[in-house]
Amino acid sequence: MTLPYETIFSRTRGRISDMKELSLDENNLNEIWTERLRMVAGDERVIRKFASFNMDDEIQQIEFEMQYPVSDFADKEYVIGLFTLGMTIEWLKPKVDSAKFTARALGTKEEKNMQNPYKDMQSRLDTLQHEFSRKLASHGYINNSYVRGE
């Protein structure tokens, strides 16, 4: 089964809002997004979901076969959702790290806490990472050889 990178990228654009990133030229933006996609695909929990998996950055396409296929539609939607969620996490991680180390130094303690978005960002990252792990686990226990009686 083939899946264009752009399908994943367009769904990811719906989950993030970063005006600075979106103001980059198309080549730089595409390079950043491809790198994030590769980081998600390189996760050992992700790669184990596939019987075969190949990414071609030249033609911007993924070719894959699921370890336990359900249907073409379900498999494609699962992979798109998984990579979209993973890319959102990869986008948010550096932002959380940056906010953690660049809290505002001016004002009273209460003002610093009001101006520092770190806790909200950290909470969002934790939620996304939990959702990612749950998505990986639920696909694994629903679609496996034991349940299918193989």
Rank of each mutant, 00 (worst) to 15 (best):
A51K: 11
Y118A: 07
D43E: 08
S123Q: 07
T88I: 01
M87F: 06
E35L: 03
N116K: 02
F50E: 03
A99Q: 13
E90R: 08
Q60R: 07
D57S: 11
D18N: 15
N116Q: 06
T34G: 03
Y141T: 05
L136M: 06
D25N: 14
K119S: 10
R15V: 02
P69V: 02
T127N: 13
Q129G: 03
L128R: 10
E65G: 15
K49E: 15
I16G: 04
V147I: 14
K109M: 12
P117R: 03
D120Q: 12
R124F: 01
M66L: 06
I32M: 05
Q115N: 12
W33I: 01
A41F: 06
A41L: 14
V40P: 15
V46H: 03
M55I: 12
I89G: 12
E77F: 00
L125W: 04
P4S: 02
V96A: 08
N143H: 12
S71T: 11
L136T: 08
N144V: 02
P94M: 00
N116P: 07
F132Y: 12
R38F: 11
N144K: 03
Y141E: 05
Q115W: 09
K20S: 14
T102I: 01
F9M: 01
K20T: 14
K20D: 14
S23G: 13
V96P: 10
L3Y: 03
Q115S: 11
V79E: 04
V96Y: 05
L82A: 12
R15M: 10
S123P: 01
V79R: 02
T34E: 02
D43H: 07
S145P: 06
S10H: 07
L29T: 09
D120K: 10
R124H: 07
I47W: 07
T7N: 12
S123I: 00
A51D: 11
E110V: 12
R148L: 01
R134M: 14
T7I: 12
I142S: 15
E65I: 12
V147Q: 13
T127W: 07
G81L: 00
I59W: 02
N116V: 01
T7W: 09
E111W: 06
E44G: 11
I32G: 04
R45H: 13
V46R: 02
K95I: 04
T88N: 11
A103I: 00
F53A: 06
I80M: 01
S52I: 01
V40S: 14
L125P: 09
F101A: 10
P4A: 01
F53G: 03
R134F: 13
P117Y: 04
W33E: 13
S17A: 04
M19T: 10
E6W: 08
M55G: 12
E111C: 01
I16R: 02
I89W: 07
N30H: 01
A137T: 13
Y118K: 08
V96D: 08
N143A: 02
P69H: 02
P69T: 02
